[in-house]
Amino acid sequence: MGSMAKTGESLMAWNRKHLLDIESLTAEEITTVLDTALAFKAVGERAIKKVPALRGKTVVNLFVEPSTRTRTSFELAEQRLSADIINFTAEASSLKKGETLKDTARNLEAMNVDVIVIRHSASGAPHFLSRVLNAHVVNAGDGAHEHPTQALLDVFTIREKKGSIAGLNVTILGDILYSRVARSDIWALTKLGAKVTLCGPATLVPKTFEQMGCRVTHNMEEAIRDADVINLLRIQHERQRKTMFPSINEYSRLFGLDRQRLGQTKPDALIMHPGPINRGVEIDSDIADGERSVVLQQVTNGLAVRMAVLFLVNGGKDPQEISAN
């Protein structure tokens, strides 16, 4: 610290106050999050898993749409960074009494909170908050738009298992149309140089996704044959009308990953799933628990990635604001 800052030292590529989506990130920024998460993963493996990086900061988890795993993952990440936490759920809040999102957020900000982690059923809600508040905003899933931390933990897990992302064939299977995970995954994977294939019923995987640089197919065998990674998405009952496909049974027969189909994949293809799993629908139970499944590693990595995101959005000021040393 006494030595002077090395000139030209590679500063990490991150200068953002918020994490709103993957679409606006550069490949370098995504890589910065992944590299930072690597250090936090090591922290999670120690006897003492807590670091004082966000000591004295207050984080609000504003979950206007129900969530269990994302909220607990964020909450634990915040605790491990030593932040103070307020949990706010739609069911037991003033939003139920008719308060607008803006008023709720402004009231929270009046208490000088530093970070707002928001999950909302309306696409763009985090972007809206970032415009009306001074606090840092982290998107924990907005409507069918994006779920950036899920995509970051997915690419972190793929990079961990496969070494790098560039050149990999990644197949995303299932409900693409209603999936914010799919959108964020597509952005992250294509920015890092993967070739993405989307597959599922034509009603849920429209050809328009080809505009995002993906291959779209409705043939399961074709989709999984060359895949290095198969990411299975849950059928989003809550975001779906009944008419999107005839029956769960038919979906499972046409697009479910069973033992026979697993035999047609590359022997080292990774099986991923963001959870919660509908066992027997998009994936057979024994495959979900099998040795090629990285479902639980995704959960572990989610914690490290969320610590990294919270650390980075909080971390520091613009370079211009900082005086020499």
Partner: peptide
């Protein structure tokens, strides 16, 4: 040993790079 996460001036600096401990 990387001490970044234990610094007392984290919010006064450019986003620091974490190095392995």
């Amino acid at each position: 040993l990387d001490i970044t996460l234990h610094r007392d001036d984290l919010d006064q600096r450019v986003t620091p790079q974490l190095r392995p401990t």
